[in-house]
């Protein structure tokens, strides 16, 4: 199945694009998508994508606009046509 991935801000350099179409196995979870994109989950729940250390800036992962923490976390199951967004937490001062 295919899911659409939107990537925001600094991650675009890492993932090589803003909008990606990624092919996944049926029943794949967000965790699998992240691995497919070359990343991994840390124990704290943060995501590491590519060589970019994102531990300081927590990353938000949305599936169809819903934060995965309000769904099933990294184990959230993805479906055909789902829109997954990776965006940074805004920190301002």
């Amino acid at each position: 199945m295919k899911v659409e991935v939107r990537v925001y801000a600094g991650l675009r350099r890492v993932l090589g694009g803003k909008n990606l179409i990624v092919k996944l196995e049926e029943g794949a979870r967000v965790k699998d998508l992240v691995l497919e994109l070359g990343g991994k989950f840390e124990a704290s729940g943060n995501v590491l994508l590519g060589g970019l250390r994102l531990a300081e800036a927590s990353l938000i992962v949305l599936v169809n606009g819903r934060n995965i923490n309000s769904l099933n976390g990294p184990d959230t199951v993805l479906r055909e046509g789902d829109l997954v967004a990776f965006m940074p937490v805004t920190e301002g001062g």
Partner: peptide
């Protein structure tokens, strides 16, 4: 207000 931005109605 940049200290109260919205995103996903959760985080």
């Amino acid at each position: 207000d940049h200290t109260s931005t919205v995103n996903d109605a959760y985080g």
